[in-house]
Design a protein around this nucleic acid. Structure first.
Length: 208
DNA sequence: TCATTAACACGGG
DNA sequence: CCCGTGTTAATGA
């Protein structure tokens, strides 16, 4: 049940310990793994499917931060669990997802014991930091229409499909804006032959 | 200028 | 019918 990728990167003893202490979990689409503000007891590693990491603003709106796909773990989970701090973010299953849940108390031990684990943790944090900077750039420097295009591209890439089943309202939520704007921008994209709009469905054309 | 909020009509599932 | 969508008008940053 450990993703093939790890078989080649982790040493044998570490793999054994992951088998021993890790819990296998299945999440249905839409299910929440942990809420913002909750104390973390486990670190997730995604085996299959997609987890969505979001930030909640004061009105309860969810801003999309990043996705986790196969082999990914949550960088913020590492940092906050090591200091025993509550989570700053919320994690939900974007689609049906399998994950490996590792108890947080054992991980400090692993970092000291297994170089490949330490390097995995650091790599995860580093990758996410870079991703996060990109997101910040987008929010700070890009217009909403560019953010929307990026969002659609990213979503299509991660889902491996050019057809997205999502409503304008949901998109507005993830980009922390209003539906009026999303509808208007999507309509513009459709008029420019970048996408085709259906009810709760968007088909992305090749030249988006 | 462009986003947000509220309001409304249309129509598809 | 309910909900997603397209649009407009008023207001604000």
């Amino acid at each position: 049940m450990i993703p093939a990728f790890f078989q080649h990167t982790f040493e044998q003893k570490l793999l054994q310990e992951i088998e021993e202490y890790g819990k296998y979990a299945q999440l249905r689409a839409g299910e929440t793994l942990f809420e913002a503000g909750s104390l973390m007891r486990v670190i997730p590693i995604v085996i299959s499917g997609i987890m969505k990491i979001t930030r909640i603003d004061e009105d309860g709106k969810e801003l999309l931060l990043y996705y986790l796909t196969e082999g990914d773990s949550c960088a913020l989970a590492f940092t906050c669990c090591m200091q025993h701090m509550p989570s700053e973010v919320k994690a939900t299953a974007e689609e049906d997802t399998e994950a490996l849940l590792l108890p947080i108390n054992i991980m400090e031990n692993w970092i000291a014991k297994y170089p490949t684990w330490k390097s995995f943790v650091m790599q995860t944090i580093h990758n996410r930091f870079i991703e996060m900077l990109k997101t910040i750039d987008q929010i700070a420097f890009q217009n909403l229409d560019e953010r929307l295009i990026n969002y659609l591209k990213e979503k299509a890439k991660i889902l491996g499909s050019t057809v997205l089943n999502i409503s304008h309202d949901q998109i507005a939520g993830e980009l922390a804006t209003s539906r009026v704007v999303i509808s208007r921008l999507l309509k513009k994209l459709e008029n420019n032959n970048k996408i085709i709009l259906y009810r709760s469905q968007i088909k992305i054309l090749s030249d988006l």
